[in-house]
Simulated assay, not measured.
Amino acid sequence: MTDATTMIETEYEAGFGDYFALLKPRVMSLVVFTAFAGLMVAPVEMHPLVAFCAILFIAVGGGASGALNMWWDADIDAKMRRTAKRPIPAGKVTGDEALAIGLALSGFSVVMLGLATNWLAAAILAFTIFFYAVVYSMWLKRSTPQNIVIGGAAGAFPPLIGWVAATGQVSVEALLMFGLIFMWTPPHFWALALFLKKDYDTAGVPMLTVTHGRKVTRAHILVYTLLLAPVALWLGFTQVGGPVYLAVAVLANGWFVKGAIDIFRRTEEVAEADGYATEKAFFKFSLLYLFLHFGALMVDQGLRTAGVL
């Protein structure tokens, strides 16, 4: 691998937006939303200020993970069209700056979350940052086609951290929220990999599409989607579920399974001919999938609080 910390010589003076981009704000928005949902549906009351601080520090921890990932992956980011404009390969921020920001925010977020809520939540946040930056970015991503399967755990922790920040303990509900994101991650990213195979091939990242081909990837998308559906439905029968969530889960997972079946049945000739339209539609819906589920959880919680349920 090329030394990802090599500084890119440039006369460009970085601004706040360039440094903020290191934190992967789009990913951070999902971290914030799912962590907030985990915190809000927990069966305890939190002071609004404490809840705000908890979400803020979880978000900062997620941003720290993004900065460390960009520092390490600068060499392959430069080779992929999807990531070539990120701050480091674009020459806007140096690798050393990204590393310093990532480490500083990591320490700050963990300590502050522990002080604001409890040290179990802080420990899980610390493990999440370590898992994403070291286990996934430095090890799995470049060594195995199962990178996104195992590495997906990093993105599944936020609702669990939110729940633990509120309750101080792990429960079945928290584990199911974790499982929902964990099982969603492979079909989400493999759908993207189907129409961006050349990018991963050029960068030398052993995504499943590169190592085993698109046909095998299509089969894996179907399998993981079928495994995801019961996890999503099971969550609806716990104390955090309700009629709104169950209705959303049935409809969303029905569409998701149908989309996975459609992808599985397609040949490469058909997919290439229509520009991977089905795969792109599946990927776009996958972006909405988690927001629908976690949003429905909060709607049911709101109805319970109002005495409707």
Rank of each mutant, 00 (worst) to 15 (best):
W71L: 12
H47I: 09
A37Y: 08
A64D: 02
G66K: 04
G61R: 03
P48T: 12
F57I: 08
G38V: 01
N69M: 11
A51N: 01
M70T: 08
F36A: 15
I55Y: 03
F57H: 10
P48R: 10
P48E: 07
G62M: 10
G62V: 07
E45W: 13
L49E: 12
A37S: 14
L56R: 07
C53I: 04
F52M: 10
L56V: 15
I58F: 06
V41G: 05
L68D: 01
N69Q: 11
A51C: 03
P43G: 07
G63T: 14
G62W: 06
G61M: 09
I55R: 01
H47G: 14
F52T: 04
A54G: 02
A42T: 11
A67W: 03
M40S: 14
L68C: 11
A67H: 01
V44G: 05
G62F: 07
W71G: 03
L39E: 05
A54Y: 03
A67G: 04
A51I: 09
M40E: 13
F36P: 00
P48F: 14
A42G: 13
A51G: 03
G38Q: 06
F36Q: 06
L56E: 04
G61D: 02
F52Y: 08
V44F: 04
L49Q: 08
A54E: 06
A37H: 08
A37R: 10
A42P: 11
G61E: 05
A42F: 02
M40T: 15
I58S: 00
G38W: 01
G63A: 14
V44N: 03
G63K: 03
M70L: 14
P48I: 14
A59M: 12
P48L: 13
G62T: 10
I58Y: 02
I55F: 01
A67S: 14
F36I: 06
G62C: 10
A37D: 04
A42N: 09
P48C: 13
L49A: 14
L39P: 09
A42D: 11
F57W: 15
I55S: 07
G61T: 09
A54Q: 03
S65N: 10
L56T: 10
A51H: 06
V60P: 08
G66E: 04
G66V: 09
M40I: 14
A37F: 10
E45M: 15
P48M: 08
A67C: 12
F57A: 00
A51M: 01
G61F: 04
M70Q: 15
M70W: 00
G63Y: 10
F36K: 05
C53W: 08
C53N: 07
L68A: 03
H47R: 13
P43A: 09
G38R: 01
L68N: 00
M70K: 13
G62I: 02
S65F: 08
G38N: 08
F36T: 13
A67L: 11
G38K: 09
M70A: 08
